[in-house]
Design a protein around this nucleic acid. Sequence first.
DNA 1: ACAATATATCTCAGCGCTAAGTAATTTGCT
DNA 2: AGCAAATTACTTAGCGCTGAGATATATTGT
Lengths: 165, 165
Amino acid sequence: MADHVDLVLAQWSEQRPDLDASPMAVMGRLKRLAQLVDTELRRNFAAHDLDAASFDVLATLRRSNAEHRLTPAGLMRSAMVTSGAITQRLDRLEARGLVTRRPSETDGRVVQVTLTDKGLKLIDAVLPTHVAIENKLLEGLSAKERETLAGTLRTLLESLGDKTD
Amino acid sequence: MADHVDLVLAQWSEQRPDLDASPMAVMGRLKRLAQLVDTELRRNFAAHDLDAASFDVLATLRRSNAEHRLTPAGLMRSAMVTSGAITQRLDRLEARGLVTRRPSETDGRVVQVTLTDKGLKLIDAVLPTHVAIENKLLEGLSAKERETLAGTLRTLLESLGDKTD
DNA sequence: ACAATATATCTCAGCGCTAAGTAATTTGCT
DNA sequence: AGCAAATTACTTAGCGCTGAGATATATTGT
């Protein structure tokens, strides 16, 4: 009936009763869950010679359109990392022959990143296990709970400006 | 009415209609929120010459007991990082005079880590802004929604073995 | 036309983490 | 008591990210 964050909250109220630590009930759990999930997923990535960053790029290209093509700027917005991080991710993926970089014909500043056949095969091989693991991690919640949870998280994301537009 | 994850789910159903991507409705949002929150909190840490890792150690010591003392193993369990990460965090904090390391008198393998006066003052200076920012980030949810959300996240954490015991 | 501004990508130093392995100490089994 | 297994903390190589800034191209306002 108590997780790690309950202990943390009890400790705060003991050591700093003047501090209202209530936001941590949500924030602490968000952080902790994200970390737990990351650790679990990392195993699957490693089994396919991947890491979370590379998976993220390959998966984003895979789902974006039938050409599996996107610009670094698009990848950056999707991944919420800095442009430097994307450049380095692409360097690694290109060196392994999983994506190609081609200058845009219509805008000299732009680069088109495309999934290679090898990259497509790899991401399609990883996806089923990936989704299966995510499902397994969610087994503790009913379908109804998952739905409500997803809805509340969406409300929160929207309030923080995470729009599609 | 739609956040980034809604777009992602629509893309998957378009490009891989055979794949049941539904767990991403929760997992994708968890990851995205954790990343957004981290980015916001990082600013506050930097304003106090801190980073998330250092803040985490100082805050854990601050709340743990009146002596503000813990072992590296305890810090490791709380932070969910590897032992090497804790060693390095402590190296940095010790070099800045924010914590001290002292060998345990009862167990030769154990080290006692204690917050210094300087460390205590620093963490107490950062905490109010930290909680205020967390509160601000949660403004999009009603008190009721926050409560329900925290409850569901706890259920999920417990199902993943995040026990206090 | 042209200067100013905006956009897109890349570079790099510094930091922090993991994974794997080491060394020292304690615990538990027989 | 004696030894294998577990625990604790540390070390290091390699990776990936941020933040700041460089470079090149495109767009805007006059």
